[in-house]
C-alpha cells in the first residue's frame, strides 16, 4: 500500500508541474529581438566582418543566440566589450583581436580600370566611380574594413595610416 500511495503522489506532482510549465512556456515566449536592437546600437557598425559574422546585425543575433562571445568585435575594442558586459551582465574579457591603428583605404587612381567590383564590396558605399571610369574612396566615410581589397583585379587599393589622434596623458 505504501508503494502505491508514494507513486501516486509523486506522479501527480510531476505531471501537474509539467503541464503548468508547458502552458506557461508557450504563453510567455521570450522576445529576443528587443535585445538584438540594444546590442546592435553598441556595436560600431563598421560591418567589417572581423568578428566572423557578415556584419554587425548577424553578430548581435549570434550573441543573443549564445553562439558568439562579447569580445569578438575588433574595431570596437575595449569600449564595446565593456558596454556589452554592462548590458548582458557578462564579466569583462580582453578583446580577442586588438584593432591596429585606424586605417583608411586609398585607390591608386592611375592603375584603376573602373571594374566597379570594389563598389559592390564596400559595406558603407564610400567608393565613388562608374563602370570604366576612375574610382576613388571618400576617406571621411571609410572605416578601414579592408573588404574592398580582395575583389580588386589590379590590386590598386592599399591601406593608409591615419595621423594618430592626440591622446591626453593620465595625471
Amino acid at each position: 500500500m505504501e508503494m502505491i500511495s508514494a507513486l501516486i503522489v509523486m506522479g501527480a506532482l510531476c505531471l501537474s508541474g509539467g503541464l503548468a510549465l508547458a502552458w506557461a512556456a508557450r504563453k510567455f515566449a521570450g522576445n529576443e529581438n528587443a535585445l538584438v536592437v540594444q546590442i546592435e546600437e553598441l556595436l560600431p557598425q563598421t560591418q567589417c566582418a572581423q568578428c566572423g559574422y557578415p556584419g554587425c546585425k548577424p553578430y548581435a543575433e549570434a550573441i543573443v543566440a549564445g553562439e558568439a562571445d562579447i569580445n569578438q568585435c575588433q574595431p570596437g575594442g575595449e569600449r564595446v566589450v565593456k558596454a556589452l558586459g554592462q548590458l548582458l551582465g557578462a564579466d569583462y574579457r580582453p578583446p580577442a583581436k586588438v584593432a591596429e591603428k585606424p586605417m583608411v583605404a586609398f585607390i591608386r587612381e592611375a592603375e584603376c580600370i573602373g571594374c566597379t567590383l570594389c563598389i559592390k564590396a564596400c559595406p558603407v558605399d564610400c567608393i565613388i566611380g562608374a563602370p570604366k571610369q576612375m574610382h576613388t574612396v571618400i576617406t571621411a566615410d571609410c572605416t578601414g574594413c579592408t573588404l574592398c581589397i580582395p575583389p580588386c583585379p589590379v590590386n590598386c587599393i592599399d591601406m593608409e595610416m591615419l595621423p594618430p589622434r592626440w591622446q591626453p596623458e593620465r595625471p
Partner: peptide, 12 residues
C-alpha cells in the same frame, strides 16, 4: 519563464 518574458536583460 516570466522573467525571460518580461525582463530579458535581467534574465540574461
Amino acid at each position: 519563464i516570466l522573467v525571460r518574458h518580461f525582463m530579458p536583460a535581467l534574465h540574461r
